[in-house]
Design a protein around this nucleic acid. Structure first.
Lengths: 127, 127
DNA sequence: CAGGATCCAGTACGATACTG
DNA sequence: CAGTATCGTACTGGATCCTG
């Protein structure tokens, strides 16, 4: 009679069951890292940020900023002028994550030589 | 006659231009984080790890472990016995990233309340 | 038991065009 | 300028089957 239970068929079972994982993904996402790193130094306007990050589409930048704003990491200051002007900056909490992510980022860059070496060893041993 | 060059119109132009970003993505990936966190305490066998992480497919776990091994973060000890037995553990370098990722992970968990609050404020202000 | 090979659905992402 | 809407595609990742 097939009741079709489907306990947890979805691909993102695991995403939902741990909310903090979602937030972690937001800040460590492809553009999330770069945006946080950029805003670590000073505030940016949209297009300015887009140019500074480089290679990000409008859509993804907007999406990334919205997500980070919603999570409370980024502050969006829209000025009602023509032409529109919006400034993005880090909230206090945002500054904290940015530092963490930046630190991790730097650590990885430092160790990149070791990683490459490890890869060569791995690739040499196999094919 | 369609030569179909396909230089690299792909979406991941930006991935390639910064090698460290790739490594960062490996360790902060969905399963990467969980695997590193698990191995932080002790070594695990494949199925054991699969059960401990929960929700990960064989394919993704194997893929994650291979990537982390290739990058030099995970050590794979295969014993030539029947049935096969393979133990996974962290390398010294792996232990370092694991700590960093774990710290970030914990920070996010701690701040989760603030994030939720921020979200509610954001959602209340809009739709 | 450890994992490779294959197939396929969902989605993440980018390019473009359009709005206030 | 600062986005939103729409669309097409490439890739992610899961299920399943198969091997040593």
């Amino acid at each position: 009679m097939e009741v079709s239970v489907e306990v947890s068929p979805g691909p993102d079972v695991n995403r939902a069951e741990c909310p903090s994982r979602l937030v972690l993904e937001h800040v460590t996402s492809r553009w999330g890292v770069l945006v946080l790193a950029a805003l670590r130094e000073r505030s940016y306007r949209f297009s300015e940020l887009r140019r500074h990050v480089g290679g990000v589409s409008e859509k993804m930048l907007a999406q990334t900023l919205q997500t980070l704003e919603r999570d409370g990491f980024v502050h969006r200051a829209a000025q009602p002028v023509i032409p529109p002007r919006v400034d993005y900056s880090l909230t206090p909490m945002g500054r904290e994550v940015a530092e963490q992510v930046w630190a991790l980022s730097r650590w990885v860059e430092d160790k990149l030589g070791d990683v490459v070496t490890a890869r060569e060893a791995y690739d040499a041993a196999r094919g």
